[in-house]
Simulated assay, not measured.
Amino acid sequence: MLRSLWEYRFFVLTSIWNDFYMRFVRSKLGGAWLILHPLSQVMIYAFILSNLLASRIPGISGSYGYAIYLMAGLLGWNLFSEVLDRCMKVFVKNANIIKKMSFPRITLPIIEIGSALLNNMVLLAVMVIIFFLLGHGIDWSILTVFLLAPVVALLAAGIGITLGVLNVFIRDVEQVMPIILQLMFWFTPIVYPAGAIPEQYLQYLRLSPIFQIVSAYHEAIVFHRFPPLAPIAILFVLALFACALAIFMFRRANADMVDVL
């Protein structure tokens, strides 16, 4: 599998670039949509909840503190949800190609992961510019994002590919996951601070990998602190386990997927 990925590396890289490039060609606003969607979320939540929750976020001051907190959390969440969603739908979306062409099918989720990471890095660059305009400085701790992003992508890809294989045989998976993701979003301190959650519930929410991901993004971007390495190491181990399960299921179901699709 690794050998086939290496042999098709130019196909993977070209496909990632084409996916990114076509966003600029097929619409008048082009790549601006990469920025407008998360920023529209930030403006909506900031307009509704800023006065209510801004004062409850320790270590943040200023009129735009809550918006900065939101953008940092959404950066981590968007990467996880986009990779998971892309990998979950990749085999069904490319059914015609899979049935008509002979090529390593594992390249398809790799292309989706690469495209999501590229989109996320563009969003990070734009957010850094916005932070400077809002008067929020950037510290060396932001470099932690480049360590976090691959771990988040690996974890989401492992879960997404596993769900993608199941989605070929049980199409309800694609319908159920948006509901689960919505629940995960609201049970993660993205639009509200972790301090707003009662301690008896907070200890259980901390068990969620997404909670740890968003907390690490907040530490690195908002509070200018390097996040603890222990949770990141645990996330990495979970990501490796999820990817191992995904590869196992993919290899077992690879031949049968063509017949079902």
Results as ranks from 00 to 15, higher is better:
residue 142 I to M: 04
residue 142 I to V: 05
residue 145 V to P: 02
residue 146 F to Y: 06
residue 146 F to Q: 03
residue 146 F to W: 05
residue 147 L to I: 14
residue 147 L to P: 04
residue 148 L to N: 02
residue 149 A to E: 08
residue 150 P to W: 04
residue 151 V to F: 10
residue 151 V to W: 05
residue 153 A to I: 09
residue 153 A to M: 09
residue 153 A to E: 02
residue 153 A to T: 12
residue 155 L to W: 01
residue 156 A to G: 07
residue 157 A to I: 00
residue 157 A to N: 01
residue 158 G to T: 05
residue 158 G to I: 04
residue 159 I to Q: 04
residue 162 T to L: 13
residue 164 G to M: 12
residue 165 V to K: 04
residue 165 V to R: 06
residue 168 V to L: 10
residue 169 F to P: 02
residue 169 F to D: 04
residue 170 I to L: 15
residue 172 D to V: 09
residue 172 D to N: 09
residue 175 Q to D: 06
residue 176 V to T: 12
residue 176 V to Y: 12
residue 176 V to G: 06
residue 178 P to I: 07
residue 178 P to M: 09
residue 179 I to T: 08
residue 179 I to D: 00
residue 180 I to D: 03
residue 180 I to P: 06
residue 182 Q to R: 14
residue 184 M to A: 15
residue 184 M to P: 12
residue 185 F to V: 03
residue 185 F to R: 05
residue 185 F to E: 05
residue 185 F to D: 04
residue 185 F to A: 03
residue 185 F to M: 01
residue 186 W to V: 05
residue 186 W to P: 00
residue 186 W to S: 02
residue 187 F to A: 08
residue 187 F to T: 11
residue 187 F to S: 12
residue 187 F to V: 09
residue 188 T to V: 07
residue 188 T to C: 10
residue 189 P to T: 02
residue 189 P to K: 01
residue 189 P to M: 03
residue 190 I to R: 01
residue 190 I to Q: 04
residue 190 I to C: 06
residue 192 Y to V: 11
residue 192 Y to R: 08
residue 192 Y to S: 12
residue 193 P to V: 08
residue 193 P to M: 07
residue 193 P to Q: 05
residue 194 A to I: 11
residue 194 A to E: 14
residue 195 G to I: 12
residue 195 G to Q: 10
residue 197 I to Y: 09
residue 197 I to E: 03
residue 197 I to G: 09
residue 197 I to F: 02
residue 198 P to G: 09
residue 200 Q to W: 14
residue 201 Y to Q: 09
residue 202 L to H: 07
residue 202 L to D: 06
residue 202 L to G: 10
residue 203 Q to I: 15
residue 203 Q to W: 09
residue 204 Y to H: 14
residue 205 L to F: 14
residue 206 R to P: 03
residue 207 L to Q: 11
residue 207 L to I: 11
residue 207 L to E: 11
residue 208 S to Q: 11
residue 210 I to R: 12
residue 210 I to D: 07
residue 211 F to W: 15
residue 212 Q to P: 12
residue 212 Q to L: 15
residue 213 I to G: 05
residue 214 V to M: 08
residue 214 V to L: 08
residue 216 A to Q: 10
residue 216 A to W: 02
residue 217 Y to N: 03
residue 217 Y to P: 02
residue 217 Y to A: 02
residue 217 Y to V: 06
residue 218 H to M: 06
residue 218 H to P: 01
residue 218 H to N: 12
residue 219 E to P: 01
residue 220 A to D: 00
residue 220 A to K: 00
residue 221 I to E: 00
residue 222 V to E: 00
residue 222 V to L: 00
residue 222 V to R: 00
residue 223 F to P: 00
residue 224 H to E: 02
residue 225 R to T: 07
residue 226 F to E: 00
residue 226 F to P: 00
residue 227 P to G: 09
residue 227 P to E: 06
residue 228 P to Q: 13
residue 229 L to T: 13
residue 230 A to G: 11
residue 230 A to M: 15
residue 232 I to V: 15
residue 233 A to L: 15
residue 235 L to V: 08
residue 236 F to Y: 10
residue 236 F to A: 15
residue 237 V to Y: 08
residue 238 L to W: 06
residue 239 A to G: 13
residue 239 A to E: 03
residue 240 L to Q: 03
residue 240 L to I: 04
residue 240 L to W: 03
residue 241 F to P: 01
residue 241 F to R: 04
residue 242 A to W: 01
residue 243 C to Y: 03
residue 243 C to H: 02
residue 245 L to W: 02
residue 245 L to H: 03
residue 247 I to A: 10
residue 249 M to V: 11
residue 249 M to W: 12
residue 249 M to L: 15
